[in-house]
Design a protein around this nucleic acid. Structure first.
Lengths: 342, 342
DNA sequence: ACAAATCATGCAATCGATTACACAAACGTA
DNA sequence: TACGTTTGTGTAATCGATTGCATGATTTGT
């Protein structure tokens, strides 16, 4: 009653061979209509379900893909995973989730686990301190397992990636602050060994140059992406001889921390000081003093990542194609940097 | 170079049988030390990795588990998944994610997919409108696949679950409002076909009764868990002849919407009106007017769910055990309901 | 020195589904 | 009637790893 039905059970029931059952279930035209019908009915009656494991072993395709992220409980990564899942679900792929917690060893371990599990592809947003992992990434490529970077990528020839234009994001955020009349714009950056933070910084710098504002490295602080670190950084900036009058933060959390600190020191936002964040976390919109932020469209990023994977796996001829998709960031202007209605 | 190494490749290389290779790799004591060593070395040299698919087919254990949630991009579910992943990772299980989007058909489809994929267990937070799915849940149980409910459960004999005490959550939130001096406490509820909302409502009602406050059904509004719906509900409440002076909302998002509406109508919080939410979403803490909320400890809930699964799968003797874990909710008191420092 | 016990290894079946190849029956055609 | 073709099924190998049983080689005991 409770045990699993196999094609052999059906074959025995009908006194035919398992091969015939298999063919009938797959609607092979070589099988007579009557047999086909009979098999279908019996299969339904016996509640037969195809064993994907057996199928996977024979075909070499598990119909599972692996997704590796630093952590899942951040709005950004959760949304990208949602996008990936929604795009792959109709294509009958299952999504296996792995977290690295920014730990390189964990990352390597996860990749190995996924390879052993015979996944059909790996989508990964790499951790911070990444040198050692280059080796294993090449092993993935050697095994002809499609690999796609999203958001946090490495520049490796022949590997596809889906990112947003962080440079542009940094640029438009900074330009917006300039347009609002800010003259001394500081920047809270992240780990510059990651392309994303490097590019946001570069965009910031270029925007300053393009608008005749001198770049001052004292105005750039590298900080963690959390509220506390943002507060500490803001405090440091305010202690400068000539404190800034605006902050472009690479992180919404740091931006929030900075705002809290600025208010605590009696500074009026946006009248005396403007702040723009990055990531468009839900809370930025919810605040009474809502925070301007650069949106990364994570849902779309996830969907695009899945699409690139599907293209790659269906293009056996052009299997090793490289596709670098760059999405457009969008600045959401809110109260923390909006002087228009004052 | 790039193709996969199997035990047959190693066997051929060493002129021994695959059986011996397999035994050597598994440190079977029947194999001589010299052979064992040789096999190990050759395996390492040829970069051999065990094919989990073949192993799974033979052993009947895939080492994959399925997790089904309404959606992954909510802080609550993302955190539970994080907990599950972190608890199962050291035990060599992979986590497959499925989303239902509150759609019952999708839920049934997901369960079927997971069963076909031969997962070793299923952890699920059920969707709203759930009657039809009872059938498929029984099929899971018939197949002896461990099934565990978390947060949103169904009351089925022999099925384990991990939840928080929603009744108590509703009770302590309401009692807190009473303690703050509120006399006319309204309640924003969710879909009462779900146990969680029903129990929060019951806790609310009991707290009123226990403190001599008459229950008024006009003060209870069933609403969706989003900001907009919360605003609409608050507006409705304010139009009553005797409007309430506090809201206990089953959702943080609805609570936020209500607060926005109250403020828009010139009501002072917490002086004239107190609000408590449920879920302890990150933004409740970040707001300038931070929102009191009942914490559901999703991380712990996820870990506990995984632990129950592990117990169940390792207890073959007592395989059909039923374990109902109920976690304690914790009220985080913040500005939206705190009159102590006024 | 010969039987018995121990040891190391190989053979073949198994998990469940697919598929190349073989083959028998039925059919059509000259 | 005899031969070629089509049609429907069965046989057996395959995917990769594990394991009960058999076997040959070596060691032990007397």
């Amino acid at each position: 009653m409770s045990e699993k039905t196999t094609i052999y059970d059906i074959a025995k029931e009908l006194n035919i061979s398992a091969a015939t059952v298999s063919r009938a279930l797959n609607k092979n035209p070589k099988i007579s209509e009557s047999t086909c019908k009979l098999v279908m009915e019996t299969a339904a009656k016996m509640n037969y379900k195809q064993n994907q494991l057996a199928l996977a072993l024979r075909s070499g395709r598990s119909n599972n893909v692996g997704v590796i992220v630093p952590r899942i409980d951040s709005n950004f990564f959760a949304s990208t995973i949602r996008g990936i899942e929604e795009e792959l679900h109709p294509n009958k792929y299952n999504v296996i989730i792995c977290q690295t917690h920014e730990n390189e060893k964990r990352e390597i371990e996860n990749i190995n686990t996924l390879l052993n599990a015979q996944v059909d592809g790996i989508m990964i947003s790499i951790t911070n301190e990444s040198k050692e992992n280059e080796k294993i990434i090449h092993r993935v490529l050697e095994k002809n397992v499609p690999l796609i970077f999203f958001d946090r990528k490495k520049n490796i020839d022949g590997v596809s990636s889906v990112t947003i234009n962080d440079y542009k994001g940094g640029y438009i955020a900074t330009k917006h602050l300039i347009d609002e009349g800010c003259k001394r714009i500081a920047h809270l950056s992240g780990d510059q060994s990651l392309e994303i933070y490097e590019n946001r910084f570069k965009g910031y710098k270029q925007a300053l140059l393009d608008h005749g504002i001198e770049f001052d490295e004292n105005y750039v602080i590298q900080t963690k992406s959390n509220v506390e670190a943002g507060g500490v950084a803001a405090d440091k900036l305010l202690q400068l001889k000539t404190p800034p009058d605006a902050i472009f933060s690479s992180s919404d959390f740091a931006a929030l921390g900075a705002i809290q600190e600025l208010k605590a020191q009696g500074i009026k936002i946006p009248e005396d000081f403007c702040v723009v964040g990055f990531g468009n976390e839900p809370f930025t919109k919810f605040m009474e003093l809502s925070i301007s932020s650069v949106d990364q469209s994570p849902l779309e990023m996830g969907k695009m990542t899945a699409k690139v994977f599907l293209e790659q796996i269906n293009n056996t001829e052009n299997f090793k194609m490289e596709k670098k998709v760059v999405l457009n960031p969008e600045l959401h202007i809110r109260k923390s940097s909006s002087r228009q209605n004052l």
